[in-house]
């Protein structure tokens, strides 16, 4: 039970970290990058190149991958999101982000190949004993990094001018513009931030599963489910949903059957959405005035 909880929290916090990428952009302009998972996969492949091929230090790898994907995120917003938002019901961004994701995945397959690339954990492979349960250092560090990243985001949103501008853009882009905030820039910044988070998540996941170009779709789908369950406009909700579903997944696999793991998890997702259509901590759209 404790082992399952421990592993569930590690995996859950990883998926929460990925899922926050959906929150960041949804909050500012009600769009998401449907290929966010492919961003994470590219992050893990960049980790391979920087850490293994170029023998860069871990910190350089994290910063390098984060910045590169951040830039990619800004570019995505410029070419794949902004031109698609002609009117309030425009759904073109769904297709454009999916298409760019497919292009990115194919480019990654061409460059890095289709087999999983081994990325050794910079923290070593020695099993850590926690009250009889086991965990690898790489898994243990994930919840800490997620907590750190989310705390950083909270500080940014609450105490900085940039954060206030982001919140203002989220509340009312038109009013924000009148107050002198460049709303378009803020949206671009949010996409950059989401890219950066994907990069960091990619570095974290690489030593766990290997860096694999085709892994994006699986990672993205699960993370998207978590963001929906948590509430697309609530980062706290996403964190809670990530941990909840991460642990639930372990319990279902352990006490029911590994084969029914995904069935069980997605059944929980549907039940939660039936009860709370806007997610655990999501806000009802019509209540936001």
């Amino acid at each position: 039970m404790f082992q399952a909880t421990l592993s569930g929290l590690a995996v859950g916090s990883l998926f929460a970290l990925i899922a926050v990428g959906f929150n960041l952009t949804f909050i500012v302009n009600r769009t998401v990058n449907f290929a966010h998972g492919q961003w994470v996969a590219v992050g893990s492949l960049l980790a391979f190149t920087l850490l293994v091929e170029w023998q860069m230090p871990l910190l350089v790898t994290i910063i390098g991958t984060g910045v590169l994907l951040g830039i990619l995120g800004v570019a995505l917003e410029r070419v794949g999101i902004r031109p698609m938002l002609g009117h309030s019901l425009s759904l073109g961004f769904i297709m454009s982000t999916l298409a760019i994701g497919i292009m990115l995945e194919n480019a990654a397959l061409w460059w890095w190949g289709s087999t999983a690339l081994f990325v050794p954990s910079p923290l070593g492979e020695e099993r850590i004993d926690v009250f009889g349960a086991g965990i690898y250092p790489q898994e243990a560090v994930i919840p800490a990094v997620t907590a750190l990243m989310l705390a950083g985001l909270a500080l940014l949103y609450r105490f900085t001018r940039l954060g206030r501008a982001l919140r203002a853009t989220a509340e009312n882009p038109e009013a924000a513009r009148l107050m002198g905030i460049d709303a378009k820039r803020m949206i671009g910044f949010a996409y950059g931030l989401a890219g950066l988070m994907a990069g960091v998540a990619g570095v974290l996941v690489a030593p766990l599963t290997g860096a694999l170009a085709a892994a994006g779709a699986g990672l993205g789908l699960k993370a998207f489910a978590i963001a929906i369950v948590g509430g697309l406009d609530s980062i706290t909700g996403t964190l809670i949903a990530g941990l909840l579903l991460g642990v639930a997944e372990q319990y279902i696999a352990l006490y029911i059957s590994p084969g029914l793991r995904d069935v069980g998890v997605f059944a929980i997702v549907i039940v939660i959405l039936l009860v709370r259509p806007f997610g655990l901590l999501g806000t009802r759209e019509d209540e936001k005035v």
Binding site: Q3, A4, S7, A10, V205, L208, T209, L212, Q250, L254
Partner: peptide
Amino acid sequence: KVKFSRPDTDMTAQAQI
């Protein structure tokens, strides 16, 4: 009898079984 997938991020439950 435990089943797993090639891209699984975690196989702890299978190992516990």
